[in-house]
């Protein structure tokens, strides 16, 4: 099913039978997903399909009601910090930077799991402290260089323009030296130019040997980028496969545009939709 060319692929992420229920609402229903090393996998689906919820289950922010998530063969405990420690890093759909910290400090926080200087080391300035601190700074600057933010290292994160905030979130995630990067709508709110740049960045990340799982609504972006795409609709994975195949799949089109009535001509339906849009002031059913 996968289109990866490398002969020695290993499974990085293996989520099996992940289910997340909020009271009566099943936001994610027995989803299986595998990500192999060297892959960029896309996760698409209409609004409210449960994509972000699925990410939260993978990263331990939510404890899945059922199912398990394993990373490189070991089952992950549902604790976000342990997941990051294991090697999965993520960004957030609604940017969650440390707004009042500088750009550099944001990335340094990302290094938390890869450094171990504790309180005593800091208080007594033990010999290793300065070295570790400098190494961290160096690595963080490299990452800022990589994402093109080096010139703004001393700015407060909240003062960055939107596109750069997204980049900084990626740099911060990369600082934890992940084997798998989860990106939740990395190009939301970007102009086409910035989107192209983000594509380049994600390819460069993949080339560093980091597998990427990306949620995105921009179908062109997904087509360019992904080796494989999974489609989530109402919490269920309905299709998975190469981007072109998925794009042509009837069920996917139905999920995005709505199921055509039996035998009803398309034009009639379009007119209906327009009329409904013109009348309604509240948000309609997105089916």
């Amino acid at each position: 099913m996968t289109t990866t060319t490398a002969p020695t692929t290993t499974t990085v992420l293996d989520a099996s039978d992940v289910t997340m229920r909020f009271g009566g609402l099943t936001a994610v229903r027995s989803v299986d997903l595998v990500v192999n090393s060297g892959e960029i996998v896309g996760l698409i689906g209409p609004n409210g399909a449960g994509k972000t919820t699925f990410f939260n289950c993978l990263t331990g922010l939510y404890v899945p009601t059922e199912g398990k998530v394993s990373y490189k063969g070991t089952v992950l405990p549902p604790k976000p910090h342990l997941v990051t420690q294991a090697g999965i890093a993520r960004t957030f759909q609604n940017i969650r930077l440390f707004a009042n910290m500088t750009v550099l400090e944001n990335v340094l926080v990302g290094r938390h799991t890869r450094t171990k200087e504790g309180l005593w080391s800091a208080l007594l300035r033990l010999p290793g402290f300065k070295r570790a601190e400098e190494a961290s700074r160096e690595r963080a600057m490299e990452l800022l260089e990589f994402t093109g933010l080096a010139a703004k290292a001393d700015h407060l994160a909240r003062n960055l323009p939107y596109g750069e905030q997204r980049k900084l979130e990626i740099a911060r995630a990369l600082a934890s030296e992940p084997g798998l990067l989860l990106l939740d709508e990395p190009t939301a709110g970007m102009n086409p130019q910035e989107t192209r740049a983000a594509e380049e960045l994600i390819f460069a990340i993949r080339d560093q040997g980091i597998a990427v799982l990306v949620i995105e609504h921009d179908i062109r972006f997904i087509m360019n980028l992904c080796d494989r795409v999974a489609v989530l609709v109402q919490g269920e994975k309905i299709v998975e496969g190469p981007a072109e195949v998925v794009q042509a799949d009837e069920r996917v089109i139905a999920a995005y545009l709505g199921t055509p009535f039996e035998g009803a001509p398309g034009q009639e339906e379009a007119a209906e939709v327009e009329a409904a849009e013109a009348h309604s002031t509240t948000e309609g059913d997105d089916k």
Partner: peptide, 23 residues
Amino acid sequence: ESRIGRAWVAIREDETAATAMGI
């Protein structure tokens, strides 16, 4: 001015993001 202090500030700023960064 250490890893620990930065982690504290990160928690102050956004605890969810901080834990997602491995804190």
